[in-house]
């Protein structure tokens, strides 16, 4: 049975539940992009939840200057490489804008942190951070991008805490996009039939299944058979 066949067979039972997972695959990106653009959601929100999300979308927290600074900063944190674009070009600044409204505790540290960046840039180079040469931007980031692990997180200098927060939001924002998931190589969120760790992976990690354990596990060829048992609970099908 090839993969397409096995996936098809998965849905024989699922049809009764109104499941149409096939439509969840490649087309989703267009829908998702539209949803992100319009603010409409299609992921099981209650009407109250949708209204709350719409209300957040209707507000604007960051100024145009702050958003431009966020675009520069997130692209410095995760620039493009040969295969994938930068964090800034997959909408990470917009995600940070949303999170600042959704979780207001982010507002002051981010706004103040961006202001601190401009302050240090002006003081040192006479220009706002977004207008600096990349080498100048790197010079500043080098000083704030490496936390001292001996100091507890809350006791680190504000600029170090700010940058750690920006790095966290940038990476989480990037790896939760379609592009980021492709970059990461995550293979799941797809209907499949789990039948154990691939042999080459077991070999790579020096692991093996025990025969006695495997003997207890589902024989996936029988997954479609309706279960029945003898009186002692031994499966017959």
């Amino acid at each position: 049975m090839d993969r397409r066949e096995s996936i098809k067979s998965l849905f024989i039972g699922a049809a009764a539940g109104g499941l149409a997972l096939a439509s969840c695959q490649p087309e989703i990106s267009a829908e998702a992009q539209e949803a992100m653009a319009t603010g409409a959601t299609n992921y099981g929100r209650t009407p109250e939840e949708d209204a709350q999300i719409a209300a957040l979308h209707a507000q604007q927290f960051f100024t145009p200057h702050e958003l431009e600074s966020l675009a520069i900063l997130t692209a410095l944190i995760l620039p493009e490489n040969e295969d994938f674009p930068s964090a800034a070009s997959v909408g990470v600044p917009d995600f940070i804008e949303f999170m600042a409204k959704d979780y207001p505790a982010f507002q002051t540290p981010i706004r103040g942190g961006l202001m601190w960046l401009d302050h240090i840039s002006n003081r040192r180079f006479g220009l706002e951070f977004k207008k600096l040469e990349p080498a100048q931007q790197h010079e500043i980031l080098e000083e704030i991008a490496y936390p001292d692990l001996a100091v507890s997180e809350g006791a680190r200098p504000l600029e170090v805490r700010f940058f750690s927060l920006m790095r966290n939001l940038t990476l989480t924002g990037y790896y939760t996009t379609e592009t980021g998931i492709k970059d990461l190589g995550y293979q799941g969120n797809m209907p499949n039939v789990w039948d154990g760790v691939p042999q080459e992976v077991l070999d790579q990690h020096g692991m093996a299944y025990e025969e006695a354990w495997l003997a207890k596990c589902i024989d996936q060829k029988t997954r479609g058979n309706i279960a029945s048992w003898d009186e002692q609970g031994n499966l017959l099908t």
Binding site: G13, A14, A16, G17, G188, P191, N192
Partner: peptide, 26 residues
């Protein structure tokens, strides 16, 4: 359900998302 138990409910298709409640009733 790693196996069918009746004609009405689906069989697990291993998405790991049971906390989202299964649309196939598996």
């Amino acid at each position: 359900l790693t196996k069918k138990i009746n004609p009405e409910r689906g069989v697990c298709f291993y998405c790991g998302q049971c906390n989202r409640s299964c649309s196939a009733y598996a």
